[in-house]
Amino acid sequence: MKVAVVFPELLGTYGDGGNALALAWRARARQISVSVQEVHLGDEFPDADLYLLGGGEDGPQRLATERLREVGFADRVREGARLLAVCAGLQVVGRHFAVEGDDTFPGLDLVPAVTVRGTPRAVGDIAVRVGSRLLVGFENHGGRTSLGEGLSPLGEVVSGTGNDGRVDGYRAPGIWGTYLHGPVLAQNPWWCDEILSELVGEPLAPLESVADRLYAARVREVTGRESAS
């Protein structure tokens, strides 16, 4: 299985590189072979089973979007590669997003999501209900994202802001979008395993690690209640 961390020098301001680390560690613990490649700006753009896009500042976000357009990134995902898009990454693959004040910038149009500038900036712990479970993380963004027809949110915001105060992220075939840093896959081992399981096409053996303690502690901290698992 090949995981590609896309432009970490541009979209890696908030520790999102840790998502690849969590995926690889949890895959290898189940004897699933996985390679992780960082893709830098000048590199030839590689094939991968899963691409990871993280958060970044305005200028770098714009540059990343231009490069992704040049390499035909959206087509790679349409043709079957999977994508986890976090924060700026979530905005980049949408129709358009706001940068540097209120200028809008065209996205990759992979999903019908539109991001405008919102105030105040959403900064803090966030919890999102996905199915019967909670995702916990930290958000730090000035975007308000609305989802076009046919695009489902990832989950419902329990505390924090997410897209608009009500829902967070989006879910389309092979695509997960969220505003959660943490990094999200490191703090939410169950969700990391769910994505991994979809990639390998079969259920995974349970795996205990210190990340379970972290997840339980964060759920208690962010929601004031026991973990819903």
Binding site: G18, F138, H181
Partner: peptide, 9 residues
């Protein structure tokens, strides 16, 4: 800083 995700950077 309230967000320790920098540990991954």
């Amino acid at each position: 800083g309230r967000d320790p995700s920098w540990l991954y950077d």
